[in-house]
Amino acid sequence: MLFSDHPRTHYRSAPAHEVICQLRFPTILTINNVEPADFQESIREAFPQYVRREEAAPPKVTGLGGPNPRVEQQPPVTNYTFLSADGRWKLNLTRDFIALSTLSYPGWEEFAHHLDKPLASFIQIYQPAFFQRVGLRYVNIFSRTKLGLEGALWSELFAPAYTALLREPDVEEDRILGCNSDVVVKLDSSCQAKIHAGPGRMKPAGPNAPQDPEVKFIFDMDLSMGGNTPCTLSAAALETLHGHGTRIFEGAITDRLRQAMNPD
């Protein structure tokens, strides 16, 4: 099934590799041109480390449909990065979005708590008109070795929606070099999810890092709410996306995998 009403569960061996929340707003040029000193001061206790970098902006094409279309280079985008003291939490601010991410996901309540003050400070200082897109992304990576499931097949651990080919009687899993599922699904009148699922090997962490030989299962959910979300409803929008994400995640896994993740 694609969705499940299984009760929300905390897993002690959760597979979340990275969790990212991003809120996009109409461009505020001040952010690009003036360092956000007031914003930094408001969050410096939780995010004491600061890095500024310039990133190339995609070119703009003008005059399409006319005799002389032109490609215009755009000025670089300034990306302000604020890091927690232990480096586990990263906050990014640009002229178009604010984002929080972590590679050490502790659960939804703590994640939301880390976002509360930075988001409130951003709204107070910069007063965006609204949020054009509210996004919440979960990159889950399942390792059978870490979960004690070395002998299990992916088709025993994930729903048929994501393992259809692997369930065919004449298919041997270790002979399949690629078997990914990509779907975009409408969740309600304003929300959608882009889901990528399938087995694969992780890229090495650095240029000289060895290749991890284990095949893992990647379950990547990118949930978003479009339209113009009032700033006062941004927290509620994220709660809505988290609720949708829970139903999708629980619908993707089987009871065998559930138990291996050590539910509370």
Rank of each mutant, 00 (worst) to 15 (best):
H10K: 15
D96H: 11
L91M: 11
V61P: 01
F111I: 06
E110H: 04
A209V: 03
T78R: 06
R95F: 00
G66S: 15
R52V: 09
I176Q: 05
V134C: 09
V215Y: 03
P67S: 12
H196C: 03
A85Q: 13
A260G: 10
Q259V: 09
L166Y: 10
A152L: 02
E41M: 05
I43V: 13
L64R: 01
A252H: 01
G178N: 10
E18N: 11
H10P: 00
F97T: 09
E239L: 01
G226L: 13
P15F: 03
T246S: 05
Q192R: 12
S234M: 11
P204E: 03
Q40F: 15
H242S: 12
D222L: 05
M261L: 12
E110M: 04
L29V: 05
F3P: 02
S190W: 01
H113K: 14
N32S: 11
M202F: 02
H244G: 11
A85C: 04
S234V: 14
H10C: 03
S190P: 00
G87H: 09
A260S: 14
H17T: 02
S13I: 07
G63P: 07
E109A: 13
E168K: 08
S189R: 13
T27G: 11
N92S: 09
L115N: 01
P67G: 00
D220R: 12
E173T: 09
E173V: 10
T246P: 00
C179T: 12
K90P: 00
C179N: 14
M225G: 01
I43E: 03
L91D: 06
L93K: 04
E41F: 01
D38T: 09
P128F: 08
E41Q: 14
Q124F: 06
R52M: 13
P230S: 11
F130H: 15
Q49D: 12
Q132G: 15
K203F: 06
R167W: 04
F249Q: 04
A120R: 14
P169G: 07
L238Y: 06
M225H: 01
I28F: 10
I195K: 04
T9M: 12
L147K: 06
A85T: 08
H114C: 08
D188T: 08
K60I: 09
M1R: 07
G200K: 03
L157C: 05
C179P: 00
A197V: 10
R88G: 10
R258S: 13
V183S: 08
Q132N: 15
A260P: 06
R88K: 15
A236L: 07
L257M: 02
I195E: 02
V134K: 02
Q259M: 15
T78Q: 12
A161P: 00
P15Q: 05
Q73C: 01
V77I: 15
K203A: 14
A56I: 14
F82T: 02
N92Y: 00
G200D: 07
